[in-house]
Amino acid sequence: MIVLVTGGSGCGKSTWAEKLIASLPEENRIYIATMQVYDEESVRRVARHRAQRADKGFRTIECEKDLASADVPEGSIVLLEDLVNLMANEMFDGGDTGRIVPALHGLAEKCRHLVMVTNDVFSDGVAYAESTQGYLRQLADINRQAADLADCVVEVVYSIPVAVKGEVPCV
């Protein structure tokens, strides 16, 4: 099963994605963490996420860029969090955004289950400078390709999962 989870800031998408993983067999669970830790706020965020998944049996792989380089064994159950950070790191930190989608396909083939988390950052109606618009365009494109790859797409709205593609998996 390949699932894409989206939603706004603080909407509970990580919590729901972790619940989904917890409903799957308890073996070979891998958490791919993409966020760069650079200030106190990100340190707190990482700490909160770590505490949240502490008892769920994940092995964490740090992967800020080049997703294909993450050493994920065949048959793993993977939670990839998240596409927004991965995209920002590839784009603004000397990476290559073009390798994200092929890497997602590679993961999808290798994993028993893959849950990808992304973020809805598209609905504030603000006209940003071109570099930010370019980022939004590319992120939207990656989201669409990830959705295409997924069996189901779920939007989490203040903790409530809403089906966007397919059915909401039971958690």
Binding site: G7, G8, S9, G10, G12, T15, V121, F122, Y128, Y158
Partner: peptide
């Protein structure tokens, strides 16, 4: 919460707080 992450810390905290409370 469905916009670009704001530059201002207080704006980020606001969106996050609304999310957590409404959950």
């Amino acid at each position: 919460g469905a916009g670009v992450v704001p530059m201002e810390a207080a704006d980020r905290a606001f969106r996050e707080a609304v999310g957590r409370a409404l959950c």
